[in-house]
């Protein structure tokens, strides 16, 4: 297949683009199925964990961040890190920090 005509090139181009889509769609289906299985497994695990203790004590409300004027809750985040994040967000938005309302900051692992 050294020297090919324009018609052949057109067919190869269309076929190639279709093959890329075909491969990617199949991969997408595999990833979607994988994701569904993992989400279902995670959902199954959660009730099992909460159902284990006979009479679980009511969870204490999450303490607000020290010095916070509002209801900001920190989940596995150091107050210093939270302050830095809030400052970055305020800077990126171009708005004063006291005009923004942060509800919670969570460390996504």
């Amino acid at each position: 297949m050294e020297n090919i005509g324009i018609l052949d090139a057109g067919v190869i181009a269309l076929l190639g683009y279709a093959v890329v889509f075909f491969g990617i769609i199949l991969l997408m289906i595999v990833v979607m199925i994988m994701g569904k299985i993992f989400v279902a497994m995670a959902a199954k695990k959660k009730p099992a964990v909460t159902a284990a203790p006979a009479a679980p004590a009511p969870e204490a409300p999450k303490a607000t961040a020290p010095g916070a004027a509002g209801e900001l809750k920190l989940h596995d985040v150091e107050p210093k890190t939270a302050a830095m994040l809030m400052a970055i967000v305020a800077d990126k938005l171009g708005k004063p920090l006291n005009e923004l309302r942060f509800i919670s900051i969570k460390d996504v692992k």
Binding site: G5, A13, G16, Y17, F21, G23, M28
Partner: peptide, 20 residues
Amino acid sequence: LLLGAAAQMGVFVAFFGAVA
């Protein structure tokens, strides 16, 4: 993933153009 496939359009258009 579909967007990663759609963005390969240039590969095949340039291929066709080079032959044309």
